Computed example of a mutant assay.
Amino acid sequence: MSEVVFLLVPKLHLLDLAGAAQVFSTAADVLPSSRGSACYRLRYVADDPEVPTAQGLAVKAETAWPKLGADDLVMVPGWRSPGTAGGPRLSASQARNLYDHHRLGGTVASVCSGAFALGQSGLLDGRRCTTHHDLQEELARRFPEASVIRDVLYTEDDRVITSAGIASGIDLALHLVAVRHGPAVAARVAREMVVFARRNGDEPQASAMLRHRSHLSDAVHRVQDRIDAHFTKALPLPELASATGVSQRTLTRQFTEATGLTPLRYQSLLRLERAEHLIGQGATVDAAARAVGFADARMLRRLRAGAAA
């Protein structure tokens, strides 16, 4: 049995903790047991027996650090306000325990601002890491020896694994399950959790659906809703304009002003992003092109080449 130890700090985010914990708990349910024991045992440790969360619900924890081996994992969920003025710091014993666990062959991981805890322990020096997109500059400033990778879901460098914001902890945990038990087991865990798909670590933190939503045009948001829901289908501009109640010319102008893209270009980005995910999961370019609505793979290849240029 492997121990999965969550190191809890005050004001931790519940989803940072619960998302990853659910993955390992579900993995323990779906994997065959050995002599009646689950493959994972979850533990929660902190300096105090009760830890307040950012969402107002206190959680219980052990105060004694468990004895761990190289097969065990220590994970640090993120917390609110990790900046220089408001972020909590690990105690000296917590930082030492993290560092020693890694030094003795164990794996250490973080979710969101939990990367700051790994930095305080010296585990980010000389290593690739990431965190929530709003915190990346601060992480790089506070730990200049770290190599902060922008706009990825998670990084892995010599048994130090860091993930981006909040829900990406689920992707990180599914990745660890896939590494240990194979992608089929990780896929089964994802299905049990009703997670749409296990994302690769190098996928962007903000999808195209999110990157082009920071505008105030209700009409354009309605068009985006329609494209988001049906991007694998043909969506002629006259049909989109009619559904919005404006002329084609007006729709194109408003959409471009709000997003920097034409409706067709926005739809192509969604198709490309989904196709890249499918290819990353093992699909051929031809199969991915058909799945996202292209008649053949030529357009997908052109889009991929343009994105790489």
Score class of each variant (00 low, 15 high):
15 L>K: 01
266 Y>L: 06
58 A>W: 01
103 R>Y: 14
183 P>D: 14
308 A>G: 02
258 A>S: 14
89 R>L: 13
48 D>E: 15
158 D>S: 13
43 R>L: 10
98 L>V: 13
287 A>C: 04
181 H>R: 14
6 F>D: 04
239 E>I: 02
255 F>I: 06
114 G>V: 08
244 T>S: 15
208 A>W: 04
131 T>L: 04
147 S>I: 10
132 H>P: 03
41 R>S: 07
197 A>W: 04
63 T>I: 11
117 A>K: 11
7 L>M: 13
74 V>S: 14
46 A>W: 01
33 S>R: 15
264 L>T: 02
115 A>Y: 02
67 K>I: 04
7 L>C: 09
96 R>L: 11
271 R>W: 01
20 A>Y: 00
41 R>P: 08
127 R>F: 15
220 V>W: 00
140 A>T: 07
217 S>N: 10
72 D>Q: 12
214 S>Y: 06
11 K>V: 05
217 S>E: 14
18 A>P: 00
31 L>I: 06
129 C>F: 08
216 L>I: 10
38 A>F: 08
280 G>D: 07
55 Q>D: 12
188 R>V: 12
299 M>I: 05
223 V>C: 14
134 D>R: 00
201 G>C: 03
152 V>W: 05
293 G>K: 02
268 S>C: 08
143 F>A: 02
74 V>Q: 13
237 L>K: 06
13 H>F: 06
30 V>P: 03
166 I>A: 05
57 L>P: 01
151 D>H: 05
228 D>H: 12
84 T>R: 13
208 A>E: 06
46 A>H: 08
261 L>C: 13
23 V>N: 03
123 L>Q: 03
247 S>K: 10
63 T>P: 11
39 C>I: 07
100 D>R: 14
52 P>M: 10
17 L>C: 07
186 A>R: 04
214 S>E: 11
50 E>G: 12
17 L>E: 02
273 E>F: 10
32 P>R: 06
176 L>C: 06
169 G>T: 08
60 K>L: 05
64 A>E: 11
94 Q>K: 13
258 A>Q: 11
300 L>W: 03
198 R>D: 02
141 R>P: 01
106 G>E: 13
132 H>Q: 10
74 V>M: 13
222 R>E: 15
261 L>R: 04
245 G>C: 10
44 Y>I: 01
224 Q>L: 07
37 S>T: 12
